[in-house]
Design a protein around this nucleic acid. Structure first.
Length: 230
DNA sequence: CACCAGGGTGGTT
DNA sequence: AACCACCATGGT
């Protein structure tokens, strides 16, 4: 059984993610992240975008594609030096090329996308986490965007947002963030759009302020109870 | 010139 | 568990 959204769970004020989702959607509009990118390309994107803007990662992906390296088999056997030439501009070319190739080799050895898509979500997540360069956030992003699994991508923006909206002082633990969001946002398409919106909101000027001041969620952050459903 | 961007890892306290 | 340096580059 699930506690009501208007109760406090483990001392953490509850928040209604559906209401938050609607507010973000009307503020920023649909983001359309990887609407149908599909399969291996999303693995590549998820790795390359780390500590970089999507703009730079996308350029690297385009370069890989033009060289016909945007396929697991090709990438798995390509020399690191050749992979690196396509990663200039998205940072960490040495590290990322190594991780990218290892990921491609794993992908091929695992039997390709269709085979992986048939696996249990829990198994998939553990397998992803075992890859170098894949932590919680990237694993959940891949589960959500490449395999259409209802994963909650917990990033810094979401932690900050939920903390403020729920009136907490410090940062909210990942487990609480995950539980709150998963409690009412379950549709894969909504989770997909939600994460994109959270990232978009994270770019706004309230990023380094104690409370949102210039963004469209100012009212929610001030009251600290703007999204509690009661 | 300092700081950040759709993080993760390994080591230290 | 929390903190840190590091990974490297383009943008502002």
């Amino acid at each position: 059984m699930r506690p009501s959204l208007s109760t406090f769970e483990g001392g953490i004020p509850s928040v209604d993610p559906v209401r938050l989702y609607r507010r973000l959607l009307e503020l920023y509009g649909p983001q359309g992240w990887w609407p149908g990118g599909g399969g291996f390309e999303i693995f590549v994107g998820a790795l390359l975008v780390q500590r970089t803007t999507w703009r730079n990662a996308e350029a690297a992906i385009g370069s890989l594609r033009a060289a016909e390296l945007l396929a697991p088999a090709a990438l798995a056997q390509a020399p690191l030096s050749r992979i690196q030439t396509h990663l200039m501009g998205c940072g960490f070319h040495a590290t990322k090329s190594r991780r990218l190739k290892a990921m491609a080799r794993w992908f091929v050895a695992a039997g390709g996308y269709e085979r992986l898509a048939g696996q249990d979500t829990g198994w998939l997540r553990q397998a992803l986490l075992a890859l170098e360069g894949v932590g919680d956030e990237t694993a959940d992003a891949i589960l959500l965007y490449a395999f259409d699994r209802p994963a909650v991508v917990v990033d810094e923006s979401l932690r900050r947002l939920l903390s403020r909206v729920s009136g907490m002082k410090g940062a909210m633990p990942d487990a609480a963030v995950r539980r709150i969001v998963a409690g009412s946002l379950r549709d894969v398409a909504e989770l997909n759009e939600f994460h994109a919106l959270v990232v978009e909101h994270g770019k706004t000027s309230c990023r380094k302020r104690p409370v949102c001041d210039a963004c469209g969620l100012r009212d929610l952050c001030r009251t600290g109870r703007g999204l509690s459903d009661a």
